[in-house]
């Protein structure tokens, strides 16, 4: 545990040494505002809730989270620091988890900076704060799933641009997996159970459900198992490709 924390601390610190963290936070908050107020018609809906914010969150994650994860392992391999990291007395698992947790905590921190929105809603009306808390938890879990995809992809390529683009594409598949775009492709030939589990993975339908405050234990298990599986895949990939 101690060593995971050492990795975590270094990684998180690195976000804030470089402009990355600040640029990310500003853009995230700026886009959050646009999505909520302009496209989500926050005022026109005349409801005291944050549905207009959470509904667009998957789309925001889609383009911003790969920007965090693209350097996670790609950079490590490109700079050669992976050789240092892997010859220090830490296990591969500790390194993978430490790095992932740093990215996750950073994203959750950014997410929490949208709190003025929550205050606004409470100032203007009388929202169900339980729903909002549930939505935040769901948003944090979804961020974890996006990050795990990105962590895995960045282990595959040394090139950050490739790792960004591929992460966006794979994440997009997950975002849309509940919609016709992806499902129709599988419905033709795959058994019903498979089709249903794929649509179950959809970030969009999950977040739709959760933005209404429905935290289903199934959703949580879906996200957590996705994170675990992808991190295992990430560790295997790092181990295979570390010396390339």
């Amino acid at each position: 545990m101690g060593k995971i924390f050492v990795i975590f601390k270094r990684e998180l610190g690195s976000y804030f040494i470089t402009p990355l963290a600040y640029v990310f936070i500003i853009i995230f908050l700026f886009l959050s505002g646009i999505f909520t107020f302009n496209m989500g018609s926050f005022f026109a809906r005349n409801e005291a809730d944050m549905v207009s914010y959470f509904r667009f969150l998957p789309w925001l994650y889609l383009f911003l989270i790969p920007a965090i994860t693209m350097r996670l392992w790609s950079e490590e391999r490109k700079q050669g620091t992976i050789e240092l990291l892997m010859t220090l007395p830490i296990s591969l698992g500790q390194a993978v988890i430490g790095k992932f947790l740093a990215a996750w905590v950073f994203t959750i921190f950014t997410l929490s900076l949208t709190f003025p929105l929550w205050i606004t809603v409470n100032y203007l009306g009388d929202p169900d704060n339980g729903i909002i808390v549930a939505s935040y938890i769901a948003a944090a879990l979804m961020a974890g799933a996006f990050l795990a995809i990105g962590a895995f992809v960045s282990a595959i390529s040394k090139n950050q641009v490739i790792s960004f683009v591929v992460t966006v594409v794979i994440s997009l598949l997950f975002v849309l997996s509940g919609t016709g775009v992806v499902i129709d492709f599988f419905r033709e030939w795959a058994p019903d159970a498979v089709v249903r589990s794929i649509s179950e993975l959809s970030f969009l339908s999950n977040s739709e459900r959760m933005s209404k405050g429905v935290i289903d234990i199934r959703n949580i298990i879906t996200y957590l198992s996705m994170i675990v599986c992808l991190l295992i895949a990430c560790a295997i990939t790092v181990d295979m490709k570390k010396a390339d």
């Binding site: 610190g13 690195s14 040494i17 470089t18 700079q79 050669g80 620091t81 050789e83 240092l84 010859t87």
Partner: peptide
């Protein structure tokens, strides 16, 4: 037990 200096002395550049 090992101290290792890899080729080119890699280190995290931003630190």
């Amino acid at each position: 037990k090992i101290g290792y200096l890899p080729e080119g002395a890699p280190a995290y550049p931003e630190m």
